[in-house]
Structure formats: C-alpha cells, structure tokens
C-alpha cells in the first residue's frame, strides 16, 4: 500500500435523468453512482464487484470519461508527473491523456470490428496517435501480438477466424498498444468458456508483472476476483458498501451485503454446502432507493437506525472501509480461512 496513488476517485456521482411527458421534463434521477470514493495505487489490481445494476460499469465508464460525471473528482497521476482531475477536462484536454488509460471489453465478439484485420485493429491506436510509418506499425503490432500469445503471421486475418479466447487476446493487445498506465477490464473473462478463462487470467497477471500495469477489474465472478485482485470494492445500488484487502475481505466481511454475496457463490465441491444463505427480495431500483441504508430491507441484521439514517462510509480498520451502522458489533462469516 506504500505504492503511489495512480487514481483517486472522490465523491463520484453519476445521475441519469428520467424524462417524462411532452416537454421531457426531468421527473427524477437514476442514481447510478452515488458518492463513491476509492483510490487505486500504481501497480495494483482493484476489483469492483456487485450485482447487475449496482453501478460498477458506470464507475469504470466515468473514469475513462465515456460518461461525464455529475459531480466528484477523478484525480489521475499522469506519466508526466502531473495530477489532473479527469472529471473537469474537456474532450480536447482529455485526448493527450487517453493513451494512458485503456479498456478491455467483456464481449470479444462485439468489441472487434469484423471488417478490420488484426493489423488494423491493433494498429489503429498507434496510427491515431501519430505512428504513420507503416513498417514501424507492422513491427509494433507484431510485437504486441507476440506479447499476448498470438502469432504475428495472423496479422492480416479477420476476427472471425479466431476463437473467443484468441479474440480476447486481440482486445488486450489493442488496449496495450499505447503503453497505458491504467487498464479498465470490464468483465474480461465472463463471456469465455471455462477452459479458456484461466488462460486469459494468467495472461493478465503476467502482463501486469511485465509492464507494471494497474488494473481496475470489474467483475461479478467472485472466484475470479479473489484470484486476481489485491483489493476489492463492493458496490450496492450505486454506493460503495465495503472496500478492503482481498484476503481480509473474503475471510471476514464487515458488511452484511458482502457476507451474503460471498455466501451465495456456489463452491465447486459437493462436500461443501454453499449458496444456502439466502437474501430475500430484490435489488432496489436506483431511481427509487429505500430510506436509510439502501440494504436495510434485505438485511438480516437491520436495526431501527438502518431504516432512518444512511450510514457513512468509514475506516473500521487500516485500509478497510465499510458503510454499515453495525459494522463493529457484527461477526459475519467469511468463505476462506
């Protein structure tokens, strides 16, 4: 944790207006991300987990400025040693910074243009950023393909000739073309077959070591997250409910939602009964969240204060942040010793 901070997310909010009627008046807001703060240290992998609709993808898109945040700060340390607030920059100001943060997508089928060859796909970021010499670009693309475990001879082929795992490698090569500092990986293995997932996870770990990359790893598969992340942030209805070191969080969750999420994961061992702790009900809508703590209607430990007062995210142990009124009194079961 002594590594310098690469990105500091402070009170990030992203609301999507709900418009109604003839005049398209704003009738309310979907609070997709509601006051989320965390930091990512250089060289670490931060996992962002939660159920669908919890805002984890919106957070990653705000960081990449695919969305403009409603409010909050995104303090990013650039290669040049400056600290800039990404949330405030204009499109033109962002352009020179974009090479430093790249994205790996979930769907290796939808994220590659079927009419472009590998050379075009992986070479395009280089071309856009000023590498006009075709030979130099060919050399770099070949280098990148080798880096991700593909043969450079394939450069003139189209994506349809490759399997899902190979396509994901192509997407990774493209993301790495410009030597990014921060790589946002949004569910990078969830669309792949089980026998191929391990290959891609190993590749991501190896590349991180070789190129000292920083990952923001968005995923819902907790097994994958446990394997690859140094720290994990758990989100629920647009808010951060818990953040901490992976091992500690899996050993002893401090938020009831984290505990329920961990307990729901089916363990691939018939001797271990899991998935039996059941959460009642459904995830509330971020357009109309419950009062107090958003989790209280489903929480088995909810007290009166949980119904009325929203908990503050606080540090309960060094590096461990929890938003729960009862974090100090609860003894919640973990899933690892």
């Amino acid at each position: 944790m002594s590594a310098p901070v690469l990105l500091e997310v402070k009170h990030l909010r992203k609301y999507f207006p709900i418009r109604r009627g003839l005049l398209q008046r704003v009738a309310g807001n979907v609070r997709a991300v509601d006051d989320v703060s965390f930091t990512i240290a250089a060289g670490e992998t931060l996992g962002l987990v939660g159920e669908s609709g919890c805002g984890k993808t919106t957070v990653s898109r705000c960081i990449l400025r695919a969305y403009t945040p409603t409010s909050g700060e995104l303090n990013f340390h650039t290669k040049e040693g400056r600290t800039v607030d990404l949330a405030r920059l204009s499109r033109a100001e962002l352009r020179p910074l974009r090479p430093q943060m790249q994205m790996i997508f979930q769907d290796p089928y939808g994220s590659l243009n079927p009419r472009m060859t590998l050379f075009d796909i992986v070479g395009e970021p280089l071309l856009v950023n000023g590498l006009r010499d075709r030979q130099a670009r060919t050399d770099q693309v070949a280098e990148l393909l080798r880096l991700v475990g593909l043969r450079p001879e394939y450069m003139q082929r189209f994506p349809h000739a490759f399997s899902g795992g190979q396509r994901q490698r192509i997407g990774i090569a493209r993301a790495l073309a410009l030597n990014p500092r921060l790589v946002v990986a949004d569910e990078p293995v969830s669309a792949l077959d089980v026998s191929v997932q391990a290959q891609i996870l190993n590749l991501l770990l190896e590349l991180q070591k070789r190129l000292s990359l920083t990952y923001l790893f968005v995923a819902h598969n907790l097994g994958v997250v446990k394997h690859i992340c140094d720290r994990v942030a758990v989100m629920y209805v647009g808010q951060l409910v818990e953040l901490g070191e992976t091992q500690a969080l899996f050993q002893a969750p401090r938020h009831p939602y984290t505990a329920a999420l961990l307990a729901a994961v089916p363990v691939p061992d018939p001797a271990v009964r899991s998935g039996d702790v059941e959460l009642k009900g459904d995830v509330p809508s971020p357009a109309n969240p419950p009062s107090g703590c958003y989790f209280h209607p489903r929480c088995p430990f909810a007290a009166e204060v949980c119904r009325t007062e929203a908990p503050v995210n606080r540090e309960v142990a060094p590096g461990r942040f929890v938003s729960c009124h009862r974090a100090d009194e609860l003894q919640l079961p973990g899933v690892v010793q």
């Binding site: 795992g165 077959d193 391990a198 996870l201 190993n202 097994g223 394997h227 899933v335 690892v336």
Partner: peptide
C-alpha cells in the same frame, strides 16, 4: 476442475490451463 479460480485457490498464482481452444 483445476483451471477454475475459486475463492479457495491461491491468489495470483498462474492457474493450470487447458491449452488451445474448443
């Protein structure tokens, strides 16, 4: 069975993989 990362497996260690693809 070896290649799936579970909450019990050793973190950040290369997973045993199945070479190639289907």
């Amino acid at each position: 069975l070896r290649s799936i990362p579970t909450v019990q497996s050793t973190p950040r260690e290369p997973l045993p993989t199945i070479s190639g693809s289907i």
